[in-house]
Design a protein around this nucleic acid. Structure first.
Lengths: 340, 340
DNA sequence: TTGAAAGCGATACCAC
DNA sequence: GTGGTATCGCTTTCAA
């Protein structure tokens, strides 16, 4: 763009024909005389003509761009989601613009406004841990801008959603700990205000109860962040309070590894004394020592499916649209930290 | 956008005034009668009017968007760079569109084309490990689209560049190993075709020579990826060949940790038997055991400076432009893996 | 103070 | 086969 941009007008002038003809020639319209067409194409290539994207967007009322609002990028799971989104988008001729909310509610609100002015044809969003008021997202629906939520979704907005079966994953993980002989299983999770954490906690609870155990609130922690430091401090709190436990289920890999760090410091051996299970299958969970048992979430697939749902909405437009919720299955990856 | 979008035309019709007046009122033009202005603003708010971004772009020949081409996102360093870019961009009213080349040359070429059609006002780029032919980047210069390279830069394109002082960082790291008494220091690095790796290797070599040591090619590896597995296999190769060494300088944290993994397996104790130094200060380097000594690169600052240089180019436009290269300093972070 | 009209780049309908 | 022109939404002269 700027000064240097070649337009069809330039081509038309140079060849002494009208812009209409140039446009048609470039579009491969069969009505154009072959010789004219050849001349246009040759000159276009010589001048390195690129159709002005902005003009096309305005004309067609479509930007061929998808917006993604995501709370973190340095995150193996989210990164795979983005990759899935990009692959589907590019394959359909769409670009992707990523807004990183950095887990900030204020930033998220700004991001929605940024995407609301016709810059994108549709939006894929995963809300931050702190998002409670979702008015800013409802506005997409009001304006009938296609919207798909993934992972951390908003319950009371009626649109497509793609989520992980957190409940089942967490149930299975805790079940595994019980079946390998653990009797006193602690829980360390992220902010319980988030639906995904509610589900992970519920899976934990139900797995215990299924086996006739009950939750001991002294070894349950709902942390603010889900980060490493929270895992360490939670494990420390449990031990300082002289709580007995032989396993920890951490609702994120970082919480789990943070907990292990403290256990080691306190002289406990993982998994001999205490088994630990994580959630997300970050790269570090494989590299850490002991390697961490964890839940593998299908991030790429989540991105792929979300993008497909969004493209469907975009293509549908005026037609009737009935929102779907896709629930994706997870896998347990058992490693050293829970192999007794 | 799409059907539902409110335009100034709608407002004009509703109030029985012209679009010009509406436009002026919204722009805060003082010539508009206060009562008219108030009415326009009130209605605009009521209808939740948002100026059409595409129309503005076309009109002003400016997109208020910066493009970023980056080879990886799940990377603590790049992530900080992006954050720095975003902060500067947003503060100046610019959006950021990120193209992830996924370390693929082909993808990178596509990304440059995507950004070449007037979608962005300028581009920030870090080339992939595999990029040798840089014709696609030269086209930005030909079209006088502002361009700034960061981190992995292209030497023979005359534009702004922001780089890390890889040479000095690596020199200092190896120097530290020598000063703590190490005599036989191995080198494991990424693809030597990349300038940054040439510099890291040179820093290693010069530090050795400065202390009267010489490079032993049997304990030098230039790997293809810089990933974990390459670190492991290089360390294995050194040991399988019965090479003696008491330290390893890994030109990425992943290479270093991969190497440690093998050392442990082979019964060596880090740092007692062998010191290890990494590069990049990934989060994992702090969590790993032993915690990894490493080079901290100022990612956020790199992003910030790159974006500022780009915005300067954009604002300058026609004026004379003399490309600058900023070289950023690094810090050594000494942790357990090199503390004897 | 306000309105009419040109123009940003590309497309498509309507003439000829 | 080709040219003229309206149009997308908005800003900005130029007139009134």
């Amino acid at each position: 763009m700027k000064s240097g941009q070649v337009t069809i007008k330039d081509i038309a002038k140079e060849l002494n024909i009208s812009v209409s003809t140039v446009s048609r020639a470039l579009a491969g319209n069969p009505l154009v005389k072959p010789s004219t067409k050849a001349a246009v194409i040759e000159l276009a290539e010589k001048l390195n003509y690129q159709p002005n994207y902005t003009a096309l967007s305005l004309r067609n009322n479509t930007t061929k761009t998808l917006g993604v609002i995501i709370p973190q990028l340095v995150h193996d799971f989210f990164s795979m989601v983005v990759r899935g989104i990009e692959d589907v988008a590019y394959a359909s001729g769409y670009s992707v613009i990523i807004c990183n909310s950095h887990e900030s509610y204020e930033r998220e609100v700004i991001d929605t406004k940024t995407l609301m002015n016709g810059r994108v044809d549709g939006v894929l969003a995963c809300i931050t841990k702190h998002t409670k008021d979702v008015t800013h997202f409802k506005e997409f629906v009001n304006r009938s801008i296609p919207l798909v939520f993934f992972d951390c979704v908003v319950d009371d907005i009626d649109t497509d959603k793609v989520i992980i079966d957190d409940y089942e994953a967490s149930y299975n993980a805790v079940n595994h700990l019980i079946e390998t002989g653990r009797k006193h299983i602690a829980y360390i999770g992220g902010p319980i205000s988030l639906l995904i954490n509610q589900n992970r906690y519920k899976g934990y609870k139900d797995a215990l109860e299924k086996h006739g155990m009950s939750v001991n609130d002294n070894i349950v922690a709902h942390c603010e962040t889900g980060d490493f430091a929270d895992g360490t401090s939670s494990a420390k709190k449990f031990m300082d309070n002289n709580q007995q436990f032989d396993a920890i289920f951490g609702a994120t890999d970082m919480l789990a590894i943070g907990a292990i760090k403290h256990l080691k410091k306190a002289g406990k051996v993982v998994p001999h004394d205490i088994s630990v299970f994580g959630f997300s299958n970050w790269k570090i969970s494989e590299l850490y020592e002991p390697s961490l048992s964890t839940v593998d979430q299908p991030g790429y697939e989540m991105g792929r499916i979300s993008a497909e749902l969004l493209l469907n909405q975009i293509r549908n437009e005026d037609d009737t649209f009935s929102p779907k919720t896709e629930i994706l299955k997870t896998d347990l990856i058992v490693r050293e930290s829970s192999t007794i």
